[in-house]
């Protein structure tokens, strides 16, 4: 936490209320980020994973579902991470798995962010009965961990990729609307917003020009943390059999498929789990750095 104070002082933000964000500090942000080597390294790792996901057909040496007679082979030159019980190439399956993991992680959080931000803005800005209803719903979700909400929703909707995306997306809405609602309350009565209103600005202008830009930092931090936990949620759901349909190569499902063969093939347990851990770890490092740089307090 101590280097956080240094960065904040450097950005001249130590005694801030919420001042409007100005480009003057943009390069300082880049510099502050560059000074955090773990975060820089994490970003590079994430870019590599992203490239692997996008160019999976070019990178993977085999079709992820192609079966071969080389069952349960240890890592070798032909199969860099070995093969599974059906003779499928583990490396190819993990590379393709990156597609689903990243897609689910990012798409669910982006959707949850859009819905959550709109709900938070409505609740915080208009108050009254709108706030009461939205807050009641958000508090209901808040009483349970996101993953448990996702399990409940899968119980209701059933399994499969689309249902998992809907379930995880809905489970993460409350995080965003809580953050945004709180931000709106703290910004709404600030001098510059009142000045803007006095100058005749309407609701839409105040929300879009003042409140949203100034809530951006906590939203970005929340989204980053959200992606890592959504990736974990998808992997866990798939592992439990509540996720994507069998044969789809995803990291959680590869681990689940291989369950009975772990004693004969340690690579089947090690590599898919490492793929999940490295991805989530990198995003968490990134999130920590962003939290420090934007000086967002961890809320309770």
């Amino acid at each position: 936490m101590s280097d956080m104070a240094e960065t904040a002082a450097e950005l001249g933000q130590l005694d801030r209320g919420y001042e409007p964000a100005r480009p003057r500090s943009r390069w300082l942000w880049v510099r502050a980020f560059w000074q955090r080597k773990p975060a820089v390294l994490a970003t590079i790792v994430l870019l590599v994973i992203l490239i692997a996901a996008i160019f999976a057909p070019q990178i993977a040496p085999y079709d992820p579902n192609a079966q071969d007679y080389e069952f349960l082979e240890a890592p070798s030159l032909r199969h860099p991470l070995g093969t599974d019980d059906l003779g499928r190439d583990l490396f190819s399956r993990i590379v393709y798995g990156a597609r689903i993991s990243l897609f689910v992680g990012v798409s669910t959080v982006v959707l949850a962010m859009i819905i959550g931000v709109v709900l938070g803005l409505l609740a915080g800005y208009y108050g009254g009965w709108i706030d009461t209803i939205i807050t009641a719903y958000v508090d209901l979700q808040w009483a349970f961990p996101n993953f448990i909400i996702a399990v409940y929703l899968v119980a209701v909707f059933g399994t499969g990729l689309t249902n998992v995306i809907i379930a995880v997306m809905l489970a993460y809405i409350d995080d965003f609307s809580r953050v945004v609602r709180g931000m709106v309350f703290s910004i709404r009565e600030q001098q510059f917003v009142l000045a803007s209103r006095a100058a005749g600005a309407g609701d839409a202008r105040i929300i879009l020009r003042h409140i949203l830009p100034n809530s951006l930092a906590p939203i970005i931090v929340q989204a980053t943390v959200g992606v890592s936990s959504a990736i974990l949620a998808e992997a866990t759901l798939s592992f439990l059999g509540l996720g994507v349909k069998p044969t789809t190569p995803t990291w959680g499902l590869i681990l689940s498929d291989a369950r009975t063969f772990f004693s004969r093939g340690w690579w089947l347990a090690l590599f898919p789990g490492m793929a999940i851990t490295v991805t989530v770890l990198s995003i968490n490092f990134l999130g920590d750095a962003l939290r420090d740089i934007f000086d967002v307090r961890e809320y309770d």
């Binding site: 890592s228 974990l232 959680g252 681990l255 369950r259 090690l270 999940i276 989530v280 770890l281 968490n284």
Partner: peptide, 14 residues
């Protein structure tokens, strides 16, 4: 941070 990033079911398997 590693403890927070590792899927608990994978840790169990290992």
């Amino acid at each position: 941070i590693l403890g927070l990033s590792m899927p608990n079911f994978w840790l169990g398997i290992m």
